[in-house]
Design a protein around this nucleic acid. Structure first.
Lengths: 201, 201
DNA sequence: GCGAAAACTGACCACGTGGTAGGTTCTTGG
DNA sequence: CCAAGAACCTACCACGTGGTCAGTTTTCGC
């Protein structure tokens, strides 16, 4: 899972990246509370004291794991300045769902941590509140553009549908993780979008 | 020894029930791994050794908390032998969603534990796999009856829609727990059902 | 190749964990 | 009212936790 990190840059940065990789994998597999710094450190090839030289504490590690993942995803989805059409963005979103089926660990990370983070005292609580607000905003904008651009224009509430779509994807992930053979996330999302009158590819 | 005296039942059974109540509340608030037997015991008014006199271990406690909740819910929903019409069952399901908005703790329990339970080694893994299969079966049967009984009959795949509906509810719960003011679960479910051509009350 | 800074280690700490053992107190059927 | 047994507590165990610290090794710009 941990691919060979390129041997460039300062040693510390490489180690840091290795730690983040390991933390991502282990948090994904077992959640936040169930994984220890020693587990992560061992997986990354150092001691837990060495790990704490790079990160001030466990919570900080979590936040940085989540943030890094968002950066990667953000690049894949393209920024708002890229001249991508709404249709292309929709297709990208659907492929992202399909691609997620190749990385159950990462999907598990978000399902587990977002569950734990419902507790307002959880280190990632604020992160997830902000994340969902951002996701809802982006999805509503995209859906609004698609509804408006359809022929004939579709009469749906973009905000309501955005909530539904995000909830659908999240819920599908939970079921798919528990019972992968019984759930085809991509197909379910496409079915949902077609019911709305959209044509994802 | 007759009926609803506050002091009914053997002492042990009352304590046992109190422990299950406490465990339910604390697991709901913080998940499985993050809660200790001492937390639960203190909340129930005894020591953790006293708790272990009633339950053989932490995992057993979890399973029994989940099972008891299913029994309660099952009674509310009515069995298959009650002569309830599909329409009435649908209305009951919708009210159940609304009622859940009054018990965020219990909702949190399922969201958190089902996330953790994606790990095949988790004590509740099998429980959740079975639970979702049962839910999908029940929902598909109900939806099938509704589609068939509609005028004119609706052309949807009951299995696919069942998966979607369950996923929608689960995903809504995650978002609602994080940000209650931003999500109206009941409204979102009703919107979804209406899009299908159903008329929940 | 030198020396300072960065990376890393091993030992340690205080504490919390699930679980156990044995004794004490309380309930309850007779 | 009285034993028997259930209920419960105190004390303890071995272990794992996140985190600290002083010291050692490694890296890397000069």
């Amino acid at each position: 899972m941990t691919e060979p990190t390129p041997r460039r840059g300062r040693k510390g940065e490489r180690t840091r990246a290795r730690i983040l990789d390991s933390a991502t994998e282990l948090f994904s597999r077992s959640g936040f509370h169930a994984v220890s710094l020693r587990d992560i450190a061992a997986h990354a090839g150092l001691t837990h004291a060495g790990l704490l030289h790079h990160f001030p504490g466990k919570e900080s590690l979590l936040i940085q794991v989540l943030s890094r993942r968002d950066e990667v995803d953000g690049e894949l989805m393209g920024g708002p300045d890229d001249g991508l059409s709404p249709q292309e963005l929709l297709d990208r979103a659907v492929s992202q769902v399909a691609r997620n089926m190749g990385t159950p660990g990462l999907v598990g990370l978000y399902v587990k941590i977002s569950g734990e983070a419902a507790d307002p005292g959880h280190p990632a609580h604020d992160y997830f509140v902000q994340r969902y607000r951002r996701l809802r905003r982006q999805a509503a904008w995209l859906l609004g553009a698609l509804f408006e651009g359809a022929t004939p224009p579709l009469d749906h509430d973009p905000d309501a549908v955005a909530r539904q779509l995000i909830a659908l994807v999240d819920g599908l992930q939970t079921q798919w993780l528990l019972d992968p053979d019984q759930v085809d996330m991509r197909a379910a999302v496409i079915t949902f979008l077609k019911q709305l009158g959209l044509q994802p590819r």
